Amino acid sequence: MEVVDPQQLGMFTEGELMSVGMDTFIHRIDSTEVIYQPRRKRAKLIGKYLMGDLLGEGSYGKVKEVLDSETLCRRAVKILKKKKLRRIPNGEANVKKEIQLLRRLRHKNVIQLVDVLYNEEKQKMYMVMEYCVCGMQEMLDSVPEKRFPVCQAHGYFCQLIDGLEYLHSQGIVHKDIKPGNLLLTTGGTLKISDLGVAEALHPFAADDTCRTSQGSPAFQPPEIANGLDTFSGFKVDIWSAGVTLYNITTGLYPFEGDNIYKLFENIGKGSYAIPGDCGPPLSDLLKGMLEYEPAKRFSIRQIRQHSWFRKKHPPAEAPVPIPPSPDTKDRWRSMTVVPYLEDLHGADEDEDLFDIEDDIIYTQDFTVPGQVPEEEASHNGQRRGLPKAVCMNGTEAAQLSTKSRAEGRAPNPARKACSASSKIRRLSACKQQ
């Protein structure tokens, strides 16, 4: 084909351009004929944790799935940006308080904090938690009735009371019990989460009196709706648990309003109706937990002794299953770290194939690490110290990083047969305790 000078094309009309061969290198194709290559998922490591896909996002930050490269346990990490926390009232204080509380709590029905990582340079905090497959609110939203069968609701409620009793025994008032803060594992274990607005009572406090509340409006008791200066913290949790039980068994809320002012007005009056299909035992329990006067409201001991709580409820309806993943529609909620794991395991070791967030990740503290002497050669063979940054567990980050890069360049065919977990650990520049 004859090559045409581009400067001469402006002298031709459209018809003349076609005659000189423009149609031979300008093609129009339908979008259905285009085959897009999927974007390669680059592996990203935060300390010893391999990052997966997004699980959810809230006002405080994002939650992603991660894999512990040492234990191969599935975890969830809450990623918090200090810049964003400053824009939220009491944001930083709530996060630090939640970390302090979770560090000393150990119960099967309370979410466990596994690790805390802090990135000084990017001003990011990573709260590594045990993995929960789904939230209770997500399960309720997945069915038209917006409720659980009585047998399933009873099982979840009993676990909620177990976890709540443990928190109260530790002198902690949750203040925000609701389905949105109750998570579930694949085995059906309920976990109380989000202790950001919780309050730890003084060890020598005479009672459970509280003065502040930041919980969700629909789950607040009349004493808070009416603006009382002080109130019983434990009875606030009992009320919120009662509203939660009402919601998961009926699909409704005892109090509603077009806006928060109308909602608080209705809560302050204390008038509500219980659907007739709840039955006398459940209705009596709800009335005891939603008692207007805090002094007359049920205690956890009274809830445990109630006939509806103690009764064994046979399954009359099919239980609400864990819904498919909202993004991938995966009904099994498979591990989202698998594509990243395959990338590390299947590809040659190259620095361009993975990302390490930083050479140094500070753990379990908000301060910069200490310094240790770096050896410097002298005339008599002895070495003197220069400062060298280290990880919180004493690992020399720069030395590990250099060693990792040197190993990656060394030709050794046997290394390709290593397991995925050992490869992740070798790529991680800074081991965590």
Rank of each mutant, 00 (worst) to 15 (best):
G276W: 10
Y246T: 05
V63E: 01
I172G: 04
S213Y: 10
K64Y: 11
F354E: 12
G163R: 01
P6F: 04
T395I: 05
P369A: 11
N259T: 10
D68V: 02
K311P: 06
H107Y: 01
N119T: 11
R104V: 04
I322A: 13
A273R: 07
F234R: 12
L160P: 00
T328E: 12
G408H: 15
A414L: 08
K81D: 09
T189N: 02
G187P: 12
E121T: 07
A205L: 03
R383L: 11
E256Y: 11
C134Q: 03
T395S: 05
I79L: 02
R147W: 04
I356F: 08
S401I: 12
Q159W: 05
K423E: 15
A318R: 11
D365R: 15
L183V: 08
G279S: 09
E375H: 09
E130P: 02
Y261S: 03
Y246L: 04
F204L: 08
I99G: 04
Y36V: 04
V338R: 05
Q100P: 06
H107S: 04
V20T: 14
I424D: 13
E374V: 04
V338Q: 13
L195I: 12
K78H: 00
V337G: 07
V110W: 02
P387I: 13
L184T: 12
F298I: 10
L160V: 09
P294E: 10
S283Q: 13
D359Y: 07
G58N: 03
R384T: 07
P38D: 15
F148D: 00
A389Q: 08
T212G: 10
S19I: 10
V143G: 10
P6L: 06
E33A: 10
D207P: 06
P369G: 14
T71N: 05
K235T: 02
C73M: 15
T402D: 08
L85E: 15
V243G: 02
N393A: 14
S421L: 15
L17W: 14
N90D: 09
V4T: 06
R211T: 08
N247M: 03
R426Y: 13
E120S: 11
I238R: 00
R426L: 11
D365S: 13
S334G: 10
D343V: 08
R384G: 09
A318Y: 15
I161C: 06
S59D: 05
P339I: 13
L427V: 08
L400W: 14
L290S: 00
K403F: 08
S59V: 13
V143L: 08
C391F: 05
D348T: 14
R304A: 12
T186Y: 07
A200M: 15
A295I: 10
V133C: 10
C132I: 10
E57I: 07
F366Y: 09
R39W: 08
A389T: 09
M392S: 13
L182Y: 00
A377K: 15
R384H: 12
N226H: 03
S404I: 08
K423Y: 11
A241T: 00
D348Q: 13
E265V: 11
I88M: 05
R39H: 07
N119P: 11
R405Y: 02
P254C: 04
F255W: 05
G276A: 11
P321N: 06
R415H: 14
L341M: 15
T209I: 03
S422G: 12
S19V: 03
K287F: 09
Y246V: 05
E396I: 14
R40S: 05
E396M: 12
K178M: 01
G276F: 05
C134M: 01
K44Y: 12
L102E: 13
D194R: 00
L228M: 03
V143F: 06
G163E: 00
H168D: 01
A397R: 12
Q399M: 03
D277L: 05
V368D: 13
T336D: 01
D330C: 10
L101M: 15
P315A: 06
D358S: 12
P319L: 10
L245K: 02
Y156W: 01
E351L: 11
F309D: 00
K96H: 10
N266C: 05
L140C: 02
G346F: 09
R74F: 05
H306R: 03
R103I: 06
Q364I: 09
Q123T: 09
T244P: 00
S213L: 08
G242D: 00
D343Y: 09
A206I: 12
R426N: 14
F255M: 04
C158M: 00
D330E: 04
R211G: 13
M127A: 12
P89Q: 11
R384N: 13
I46A: 12
G188V: 02
A200L: 03
K191T: 08
K84L: 15
S419N: 13
K64T: 06
Q159P: 04
R384Q: 15
I361S: 12
I161P: 05
T367E: 13
E349C: 07
K191G: 03
E376R: 11
I260V: 06
P326E: 14
V243W: 03
K262W: 06
R39T: 02
N380C: 14
P319G: 13
R211E: 13
Y340C: 15
C132N: 09
N412I: 08
W239D: 00
E317S: 03
Y261W: 03
S299V: 05
Q100I: 15
A218H: 04
P89I: 11
T363W: 08
E130C: 02
L164C: 08
V337P: 14
H313P: 03
L353F: 09
A410L: 11
Q364R: 07
L113D: 00
Y340I: 02
A198G: 09
P319D: 13
A198H: 13
E33M: 12
V128A: 02
V243E: 01
P280N: 15
M139N: 05
G268T: 13
Y49S: 06
L344I: 07
S419H: 15
E351F: 08
F234I: 15
M129I: 03
R426A: 02
R106V: 14
S401N: 11
L17T: 15
L245Y: 00
T402A: 11
C210S: 05
L160S: 02
E293T: 10
K403D: 13
D284W: 03
N119R: 09
H168E: 10
T250L: 12
G346P: 15
P369I: 08
A414C: 14
T367S: 13
T212S: 05
E351S: 11
S169I: 01
R425N: 15
E130V: 02
Q7P: 04
G268P: 06
T186C: 08
D277R: 10
I88D: 14
E120Y: 05
Q100Y: 01
E342R: 13
Y246I: 07
T395P: 10
Q399F: 09
P324K: 03
D53L: 02
T244K: 02
L184V: 06
E357I: 14
P326A: 04
R86W: 01
L386E: 13
I248D: 00
S271F: 06
R383S: 10
P221S: 06
I356P: 15
A406G: 10
K62L: 10
C134L: 02
R297L: 00
Y362V: 10
A93P: 15
L184N: 02
D327P: 14
H202G: 10
Y156M: 15
S142E: 13
D348A: 13
I360F: 04
T32S: 12
Y118N: 01
V390P: 13
Q399W: 11
A76Y: 01
R409T: 12
G188F: 05
P179E: 01
G56Q: 00
H313N: 02
Q137D: 02
N266R: 10
I248S: 04
K175N: 05
S193G: 03
E199N: 13
P254V: 04
T230V: 12
G279Y: 11
F157W: 03
I360D: 02
S59G: 15
N412S: 12
T186R: 07
V197A: 09
E349V: 08
L54D: 07
G180M: 05
S213W: 07
P314T: 13
L201D: 04
K96W: 03
H154Y: 09
E407D: 14
M289S: 00
K78T: 01
G215M: 02
R405K: 10
I300C: 04
L54R: 04
N181C: 00
Q214S: 04
P222S: 07
K262I: 04
G188C: 01
S142Q: 15
L105R: 03
S325M: 01
L164S: 01
I424V: 10
P411G: 07
K287N: 12
P315I: 08
A397C: 06
L9I: 11
A389G: 12
R405M: 14
F366M: 12
Q302W: 04
R39D: 08
M127T: 10
E374S: 12
G47S: 15
V320H: 14
R426D: 11
V110G: 01
W332P: 15
D348V: 04
E374L: 08
I248F: 02
D53G: 03
G58W: 01
K329A: 14
L353G: 13
M18Q: 09
F204D: 07
K122C: 12
Q123A: 07
L85C: 07
K403C: 03
V150Q: 01
D68P: 06
T185F: 06
A398Q: 14
N380E: 12
G385A: 12
